[in-house]
């Protein structure tokens, strides 16, 4: 094996894999401009910007978007608090049930979403809680905790304990140490985790179908359109916008956690 040149087949296989992951999404960008509105005809018979104006004037799209943004913002806030607390506890000490805690955090995404959804729904039914904005948030916050937790726990692991001890030795109390030493250290990890949690919540559909009553989040709106297409071009435009909007937090999260890569073989 030569040391640093990749064999051609490996390059091709890797490039092919990446292309497989990206071409379908790019296809949607083309469909957003098509003049055809009755079928999914390829190649598009013509290109137009008309559907952007049509979508802009659809109140149902705006309502769904607004609800999704509000749900995502509040769920992310809850997840940030819970995820950070949990990460701090797990990284600080070895205690009885430590493994159980990390399992508990990971369970809501390790188990299929439909189980989280249906359990929450039946619990709401048993306790006679009517479906509302808050039932959606309850579900979303539960599975968003893990994303924040994962980011925070990785950063805590790299934050040296002697920094905290030094701060205490210099006379700061626990709260000052948190504010001036711990928080600046974990801030970018929290921001990254928060952005990913936001993206996760903004996109969630499986749990939401069970915990939403009459309200439509944007993914629920899309699902309706997928099952019973009413105006295909509007769906195309919304799909393209959703892709563009979710790209931003992901790129943001990447730039915030960058610079932590390691040399091959040197990882933990």
């Amino acid at each position: 094996m030569s040391t640093d040149r990749a064999p051609l087949w490996l390059k091709l296989a890797a490039a092919g894999g990446l292309a497989f992951m990206h071409l379908p999404i790019l296809l949607i960008f083309v469909y957003a401009f098509t003049t055809e509105d009755k079928s999914y005809q390829w190649p598009p018979p013509g290109l137009t910007l008309k559907w952007f104006a049509v979508t802009w004037n659809r109140p149902d799209v705006w309502e769904a978007l607004g609800l999704s943004l509000r749900v995502a913002a509040i769920s992310t806030a809850i997840a940030l608090v819970l995820g950070t607390l949990c990460a701090a506890a797990v990284s600080r000490a070895r205690f009885f049930g430590r493994e159980a805690v990390s399992l508990l955090v990971i369970l809501p995404i390790a188990l299929p979403g439909i189980i989280t959804g249906i359990s929450l729904r039946s619990a709401f039914n048993i306790m006679d809680i009517p479906f509302s904005f808050w039932t959606i948030v309850l579900g979303h916050a539960t599975f968003c905790v893990v994303v924040v937790y994962n980011n925070a726990v990785a950063r805590f692991r790299r934050t040296s304990g002697s920094l905290i001890e030094a701060s205490m030795d210099l006379g700061a109390n626990s709260f000052q140490t948190f504010q001036h030493v711990i928080l600046p250290n974990i801030a970018t990890a929290l921001l990254a985790g928060g952005m990913l949690a936001f993206a996760l919540s903004f996109d969630e559909v499986i749990v939401t179908t069970f915990t939403a009553g009459q309200q439509q989040t944007l993914p629920i709106w899309m699902l309706e359109e997928l099952v019973r297409p009413r105006q295909r071009p509007v769906t195309n435009v919304v799909a393209m916008v959703v892709v563009l909007v979710t790209f931003l937090p992901i790129l943001g999260a990447y730039y915030l956690t960058r610079g932590t890569e390691t040399v091959a073989g040197q990882g933990k």
Binding site: L18, M21, L27, Q41, V205, P219, M222, A239, T246
Partner: peptide
């Protein structure tokens, strides 16, 4: 490569499913 994997990972699930509805349609690509 990192972003190339992260973007599809975090892209909207429904949008991804929708794109395949377009691809696999009888009149599709």
């Amino acid at each position: 490569f990192y972003i190339g994997v992260m973007l599809p990972l975090w892209s909207s699930y429904l949008v991804k499913v929708y794109s395949w509805k377009l691809i696999l349609a009888k009149e599709g690509i």
